[in-house]
Simulated assay, not measured.
Amino acid sequence: MTQVHPTRSLPGSASARARSEPHFNTRVIGSSDLRVYPLALSGNIFGWTADEQATTAILDAFAEGGGNFIDTADSYASGRSELMIGEWMRARRNRDDMVVATKVGKSRENPGMHAEAIKRSVTASLTRLGTSHIDLLYLHVDDESVDFDETLLAVDELIGEGKVRYFGGSDHTGNRLIQARIACGQMGVAPMVAIQSHYNLLHRQEFEIGLAHVATIQGLGIMPRFALASGFLSGKYRQRSDLALNSRGQEAAQYLRRRGIKVLNALDEVAHEHDASPATIALAWLLNKPGVVAPVVSASTATQVPELLAAARVQLTRHQSAELDRSSAY
């Protein structure tokens, strides 16, 4: 199996200082040595609805609040997300403080999971990010037209070259994860350490039935994406007129039904008990689930970042977790 080495942190860096503080809450991603704050900041709006000034402010607020895990993809804003994150890290000189995850497989230039497409995609991502390595590379699609062996061998070569440290899946079923683990074992290559999956209070069944069990058995770090259900779980969409507030309103419209309102009411109660926001509690509920390392969440403004980071400091009681489970039962 390919050997990987930890990323160096400067003695005086923000991450080094944070790790020395007793209340700095971090989690390890699967079987890797990547230690992250339990919230991944998504770069999906960087270069799209967030311009350079807004992106810089969001990233600054995230880092200043203790965040160190950034999630992007080569397809986000046609690569502009990676460019903006790379420029920010270069300006702040904090690459060693950050754990950077990106994804390949959906870009217009290098689609799919063929070996050459993966290698070209990683090379392009490294250039845009201005870094020598990607900490966590996700396979953004499950491309069944390509033999798993080809994909896994290509990623293992990149790990051996030091361009990628660890990798995971992003759109894989439980059965496909099992196939991947068997193939990795047979070939003696690096296995997946993480899985990103659609999972939140209003989208539970797909993940909890089957995939969660496989991820747990394999010791994969679980990163729930769409963790706030397109912003619905923040509580800002409570009636039809609210859907016109921003561009994501139409995505949240699907949740503005009886079950969605029931979940919001439960979130409101728990949020009141913790003097927190509904968004904070929705993320804390995810962090209370086995195997979950860091929900993936985007912020449209820097002012939203503190309530997202606060989820790592909330300790839900058994009763509160049970109430949220019941309100969101499928």
Rank of each mutant, 00 (worst) to 15 (best):
M98I: 15
V99D: 03
K103N: 08
K106Y: 07
S107G: 12
R108Y: 07
P111G: 07
G112C: 06
A115K: 04
A115Q: 03
E116R: 05
K119H: 04
K119I: 02
S121L: 07
S121E: 06
T123M: 05
S125G: 11
L126T: 04
L126M: 08
T127V: 11
T127H: 09
L129N: 03
L129A: 03
L129M: 05
G130Y: 01
T131L: 06
T131G: 07
H133V: 14
I134P: 14
I134R: 12
I134V: 15
D135E: 11
L136S: 13
L136I: 14
L136E: 12
L136M: 14
L137W: 14
L137F: 12
H140R: 09
H140N: 11
V141D: 02
D142H: 14
D143G: 09
S145N: 14
S145E: 14
V146L: 11
D147G: 12
D149H: 05
T151V: 06
L153H: 04
V155A: 11
D156I: 02
D156F: 04
E157T: 14
L158Q: 11
L158M: 10
G162Q: 13
K163A: 07
K163R: 15
R165G: 08
R165H: 13
Y166R: 00
Y166L: 03
F167Y: 15
F167G: 06
G169H: 14
S170C: 14
S170E: 04
D171A: 15
D171F: 08
T173Q: 09
N175R: 09
N175Y: 08
L177K: 05
I178K: 09
I178C: 04
I178D: 04
R181I: 00
R181C: 01
I182H: 03
C184Y: 01
C184M: 00
M187H: 08
